[in-house]
Write a protein that binds this DNA or RNA. Sequence first.
RNA 1: GGAGAGGUGGCUGAGUGGUCGAAAGCGCCGGUUUGCUAAAUCGGUGACCGGGAAACUGGUCCGCAGGUUCGAAUCCUGUCCUCUCCGCCA
Length: 426
Amino acid sequence: MLDRRFVLENVDLVEENCRRRGSKADVRRFAELETRRRAKQIELDELNRKANELSKSIGKAKDPAEREARKAEGRSLREQSAAAQAELEQATADADAILRAIPNLSHPDAPVGADEAANLELRRGRHAPPEFDFKPRDHVELGEKLDLIDFAGGAKVAGHGFYFLKNEAVLLELALQRYAVDLLVAEGFTPTITPDLARNEILDGTGYIPRGPETQIYSIAESDLSLVATAEITLGGLLSGEILEAERLPIKLCGISHCYRTEAGAGGRAARGLYRVHQFTKVEMFAFTLPEASGAMLDYFCELECRLFDGLGIAYRVVDTATGDLGGPAYRKFDLEAWMPGRGEAGEFGEVTSTSNCTDYQARRLGIRYRTGEKGTAPVHTLNGTAIAVSRALVAILENYQRADGSVVVPDVLVPWVGKNRIPAR
RNA sequence: GGAGAGGUGGCUGAGUGGUCGAAAGCGCCGGUUUGCUAAAUCGGUGACCGGGAAACUGGUCCGCAGGUUCGAAUCCUGUCCUCUCCGCCA
C-alpha cells in the first residue's frame, strides 16, 4: 500500500494515477476518512493521557475515600477511552479498506493504457523464430505423441488443469530448474526452496487476496493457510516485520516453489494445454533494495530473464507493461513473451516471465524497512521476477525445437541434465 | 498427537500489579585520555502514531489477540512460535 500521509497530501496525483491504472478506488473518500481518523486519534490520546495521570495519582493517594472517588473517575475515563478507540478502529478499518485498494504509483515511462493492448514492445531476443518446412504441432499434440504429458491422467486424479509430466518432460523440468538456479547462484543470489503454503496474512502482505469471489488462491480448509501462487509470496514474507541494516542491501534471493492458481474464469484456446494450469513449478527471483537502487535492479532482473531465454535459444520479445495491466503492487513491469509456434493460427508470442519493481508498496505492508542515517527507518523496495516458469518454458521448448519427424531436440544448455540431445519420436 | 518449559530492546538477560519503555552486560555512536592501535573512562543509544520552528512533548508497543483492574511486561483466556521428553512417521 501507499503511505497514508502521502495519499492525504497528494489526492489529485493519486487520483490521476488510479484513473490511468483503471482503479476505482475512491481517493477522496479516503482523504475524508483519514482526516477523521486523525482527529479521533488525537481525541483518544488526550483521554488516555488524563486516565494515565489519574492512575498515577491513585497509586500515591493515601486517603481511602479519596482513592475510591478517583477510581470511579478513572473508570469513567477508561470507558470514554474505549469508546473513542472503537470509533478510531472503525475509521481506520474504513480508511484502510480504500487505501489497500489504491494501486502503486506508476513509472513515468510506463505506457499509459487500459489493458495489454497498450503494452509496448521494447526489443527482441537474440534468436529469430524457427522456420519450419512442415506444419508445426502444438505442445499438447507433441506432449501426447512423445508420451511426455498426460492431461487425461491429471484430470482423473485432480481435475481439469492438472497433468502428469512423464519421461523426458520430467528431466526437462529438473534441467530447467538447475539451469536457472546455477545462473542465479553465479550471479550472487541465495538459492532457496520455499514452503508451498503460506499464512493468509503473508499472502495479504504481498498483495494477494486469500479468500473472495475472484481469488486466484487455493485456501486450505480449517486453517489460515493457502497454497502459494508464486514464491514471491514466501520470499517476500521471509523478511516481513524486519528492520534491515542498509549495508546488507541489496538482498537477492531465488526460490523454487510449486505455484497453485485457481484460474477461476480463465479459458479459451490460448489457455490450452500447459499454458494455463492450476499447478506448475517456478524458479523465482526476489530482491530487497534501497529505494535508489530498485530501478537498476529491475533492469538487471529483466536482463537475467533475457539471458536465460537467449541461452535456451528461444525467440522472445520484451514488453513494457501498460499502466492498466500492472496489477496493484507494481510500479513498473517487464514481461518476456516467447515465440510459441503452436499457439494461435501461425504461432504467437506468449508470456513466459514477468518482472516487477514494487517499490515500497509491498514492503510497507509487510513491514520490511532499513535504517536511514542516524535515526529513522523507511520501507525497502522489493522486486520480483520469473527466472523460469517450468510449464510455459516447456511449451516454448517443445514447440520451437520440434522436428519434421515428430521428435524434439533438447536445447544445448539443458543436455547435461537431460542426458540426451533429442527426444525421439515414438 | 501427548507432557513440560519458554517467548522481554541489535544481542545476552533481569524484572510476579503503580516509582518499568523496562536493570545489567555486550554491541553501536560521541567525548576525554594515551605517540598509533588496543585499553580505560564519561555520556548517548528501540519502534510506531501525533503536536511543536526548535528545545521538547502526548499516546501506543515486553510474540499476537482478548479479558480482569483506576492502573498489566507482571494475573486470566485463546492463539502462534521455539526448546526438551514421549509417541508416530518419509
